[in-house]
């Protein structure tokens, strides 16, 4: 048997083989179909394919559900941030904490410290005033 370069491109015919090898090739060709896939292979493969397809579909559903959950979580986070910012708005003053905060602001604006120093200032002012009253009454009583 000789194999030239042209046989790489074209199918080698049995004519190209020696009679002995040609007969061997024929015998091999005749034995081609005696080995067959086992009875249940077809069912097994089709069943697995359908199962896999079902699994893929379930995976897609789960993926979509997870994506929807992520989107919902992001929306919730966004809303929470918005609510946090809203707390700084004047509406917040309607609450007890807000009112206390506003009272502190007013006190700061008027430069009055709502504590003991205010009482001290008041007492000082009152004693000063009473002193003036006493002085003015005394000077008017010594007048002729």
């Amino acid at each position: 048997m000789s194999i030239d370069s042209s046989s790489y491109r074209d199918r080698m015919n049995d004519d190209d083989l020696s009679p002995e090898l040609g007969r061997t090739a024929e015998r091999i060709r005749a034995a081609s179909s005696i080995v067959q896939p086992s009875e249940f292979l077809r069912t097994k493969i089709l069943q697995r394919a359908r199962q896999k397809e079902g699994d893929t579909r379930s995976d897609r559903i789960v993926l979509r559900a997870v994506m929807a959950l992520v989107v919902c979580s992001l929306l919730l986070m966004f809303t929470a941030l918005k609510l946090d910012a809203w707390q700084d708005e004047p509406v917040r003053r309607a609450t007890w904490a807000g009112m206390q905060e506003r009272a502190a602001e007013i006190a700061a604006e008027r430069r009055i410290a709502v504590d003991a120093s205010l009482c001290e200032a008041y007492l000082e002012w009152r004693s000063d005033l009473s002193q003036r009253w006493r002085n003015s009454n005394a000077s008017s009583s010594f007048q002729p």
Partner: peptide, 24 residues
């Protein structure tokens, strides 16, 4: 070349007396 070697081996192993070969 692999084909050539294989066919030579197979021819020597299989009895190669002329047979009426039918296609299956």
């Amino acid at each position: 070349s692999r084909y050539r070697y294989a066919m030579t081996k197979l021819a020597s192993k299989l009895s190669v007396e002329p047979l009426e070969v039918r296609h299956v």
